[in-house]
Computed example of a mutant assay.
Amino acid sequence: MRNFIVSIIAIILGLIAGGILMLLIGSNPIDGYLYLFQGALKNISRIGDTLATATPLVFTGLSVAFAFRTGLFNIGASGQMLIGGLCATAVGLTYDFSRPILLLMMIFAGLLGGALWALLPGLLKAKFNVHEVVSTIMMNWIAYWTVYYIVPGYFKGEFLETESKKLPDAATLKVPFLTEMFQGSYINLGIFIAVIAVIIVAFIINKTTLGFELKAVGFNRHAAEYAGMHVNRNIILSMLISGGLAGLAGVALYAGNASTIQIGILPSAGYDGIAVSLLGANTPVGVFFAAILFGILYSGTGFMNAMTEIPPELANTIIAIIIYFAATSILIERVIKRFWKTRSSKEVVVPDVKKGES
């Protein structure tokens, strides 16, 4: 409950700061936010696009949050996304099975690709105590150049060398009933997979021995080792699961929101996952709703810019401010505690002492 209150306060403060910025550039903040939220939620089609935009962020947020639980900072979600998306695209362009089997194969390939890409940083951390921030950043750029080489070499598009062939309809997460329900939106099955992932991760963290051990390692590695827990194994397993979740984000992005994979682009959703995890207090449910908020801000930016003179970069600024306040949650908690302490002291009633009584 405390984390929820802190996140809400961070969002409110971020929106207030964004409104002040709008005033400074001579725009009306009420109109700005009105058009921003209309752009994301005005009709069923825009709602579908917002959910689709948020879907990869759910996976990358879960990825970062899961690693955080073991005291690890997985900053390599972008590279794991790329490899997961590349593996899923390769399966979709290579095989011609029935759609359910093909989609399951693509999802598994994306999950496995992302997990294996996170394996090396996990091993380096467990065996040699190499800091995961350094190793995962390097793996991001290895993934970048791997995709840069493989896509034009083996899956080159018909018209552009900078992107892969277009996935056939049977190899995408788009389904007619969702497209029709959301009036042409690019929402796809990825949102359902994301909800399932949230439930599974929440169950693992809160209801299993593995989740307890992962949290114990995150709180105090040496104490967990002294208690007989396999610290190195848990570190590697945590990175595998974290990478697999990021790989699913690649499947959702390249086989759901899009139908091709482009070279020369390191997906920003991987880094946005850090912000989503932080705002969601590293909890699966919190991550889901934080991703939805980010989806609203990103989806509504274009409409806000079209209807006003407010630059689209303002949405990124608002997100940055929200994350800043979320990162300084300790200060917000202190303010809340001081407020409640002051209020409680004022409510203390001192009984009257009657004079003359013994």
Score class of each variant (00 low, 15 high):
residue 218 G to W: 09
residue 108 F to R: 04
residue 3 N to K: 13
residue 6 V to G: 06
residue 187 I to S: 00
residue 157 G to V: 10
residue 50 T to C: 04
residue 85 G to Y: 02
residue 1 M to P: 10
residue 289 F to W: 09
residue 23 L to N: 11
residue 335 V to L: 15
residue 265 I to T: 11
residue 199 I to A: 14
residue 267 P to M: 04
residue 102 L to W: 03
residue 216 A to N: 05
residue 222 H to D: 14
residue 38 Q to I: 10
residue 11 I to P: 00
residue 326 A to G: 06
residue 14 G to K: 08
residue 147 V to R: 03
residue 296 I to Q: 01
residue 321 I to Y: 03
residue 229 M to R: 14
residue 118 A to N: 07
residue 60 T to V: 03
residue 196 I to S: 14
residue 266 L to G: 07
residue 352 D to T: 13
residue 309 E to A: 14
residue 156 K to M: 10
residue 347 E to S: 13
residue 336 I to T: 04
residue 328 T to S: 12
residue 236 I to M: 08
residue 352 D to L: 12
residue 12 I to N: 05
residue 65 A to R: 00
residue 235 I to C: 04
residue 297 L to K: 05
residue 129 N to P: 07
residue 290 A to F: 00
residue 288 F to Y: 10
residue 216 A to F: 06
residue 202 A to C: 09
residue 75 I to W: 00
residue 194 A to M: 02
residue 240 L to H: 04
residue 270 G to W: 01
residue 100 P to D: 08
residue 320 A to N: 09
residue 100 P to I: 06
residue 235 I to D: 02
residue 11 I to C: 11
residue 353 V to A: 13
residue 274 I to Y: 04
residue 171 A to E: 01
residue 345 S to R: 15
residue 78 S to C: 07
residue 176 P to C: 09
residue 31 D to C: 09
residue 59 F to T: 06
residue 189 L to I: 03
residue 113 G to W: 01
residue 292 I to Q: 00
residue 22 M to C: 12
residue 334 R to M: 12
residue 260 T to D: 08
residue 133 V to Y: 02
